[in-house]
Simulated scan of single mutants.
Amino acid sequence: MDELEFRRRILSEPKLRDSDINAAITANEQNAQFAEEILDLDKQIVKAMTVDVPEDLADRILFNQSSTTQGNVIRPNFARKTMAMAASVAFVVGVLVGQVNWGNLVVSPAQASLATTAIKHVVDEKPFVESLDEQVPSSQINAKMVPFDHQLSDTFPYHVYYLNHCGFGKSNALHMVFQGEKGKVTLFLTGIAADQVVNFDQDGMSGAVQPMGNNSLIVVGTEGENITKIVESLSKIIKPTI
């Protein structure tokens, strides 16, 4: 063992005395002196860190804290009580929001997610579908609706520019672009259920989520498009097959 390794090991573990360390101490007087000095230093450090605690220290600390804060008791306590009351009110309101059936006043997270996902699809895929005109017939629409257990009971009443399947959140969807009164309208029929009708306006677009059994019909158009009229029209001809 060289001198550098010896010093490194002694510094890291002053009390270490294995065969290699003992051999190095025996073979070299300077090593023996260095090991003894480091051991003494370690003992001094341990002694310095060992401090006797007065028996009445805890009582003295509590007394000092009480004396220091005695003149300011009212304001801190009032602030704490006010904050506690506000937290309690917030908790109760949170419980009520979770338990009460608010109907159409509150959009559920699932439905908000459907709307957000639909709008993102429309924005992201607009450059791709904007120039397409596949002139999709109703027979092809029915073929794409098969995985969602729905079919058209009549001819689709709008000119269809684009039709395909797409990923939609954690599910899949039928993705259609057709002509509305104000401009192009996008339709998604997805395998994610919704529990109520929800209308939404976001990013210059208007839309609606319409429950259809275990599926959801989502329609998104430009702002000013009569989405309600379109959804009512389509709900009459898109029917379950089972």
Rank of each mutant, 00 (worst) to 15 (best):
S66W: 01
N31Y: 02
K81C: 05
G98W: 09
V100A: 08
A48K: 08
R60K: 13
L39N: 02
N31V: 03
T50W: 03
N22E: 13
T117C: 01
G98Y: 08
G71A: 13
A35P: 01
W102C: 10
N77Y: 04
R80M: 11
N64D: 12
A27N: 10
T117I: 04
R80Y: 08
Q65E: 14
Q30S: 15
N31P: 00
F63T: 10
N77R: 10
D52W: 01
M85D: 11
E37H: 07
T26L: 11
T117Q: 04
G98A: 14
A79D: 11
G98C: 09
A86S: 15
N64H: 10
G71C: 07
N104K: 09
A118R: 00
P76V: 06
R80K: 12
I119M: 13
V122F: 01
L96A: 07
N22F: 03
V92L: 14
S113E: 12
A48C: 07
V93E: 10
A58C: 06
E36S: 15
D40R: 15
S108K: 06
G103W: 02
P76K: 05
V51T: 09
A110L: 04
E55W: 02
V106F: 02
I61A: 11
T117F: 00
I38V: 14
I74E: 14
L96F: 03
L114H: 04
V100R: 03
A86C: 12
F91M: 15
A90M: 14
T26W: 02
N104V: 07
I25G: 03
A110T: 06
V106H: 01
D40M: 15
V95G: 09
I119L: 15
F78E: 10
D52I: 03
G71E: 11
V89M: 12
M85P: 02
Q44E: 14
P54V: 03
Q30D: 15
V92Q: 06
L105N: 06
D52V: 03
L41H: 05
V100W: 04
V53D: 00
A58E: 08
Q44L: 15
V89Y: 10
L96T: 02
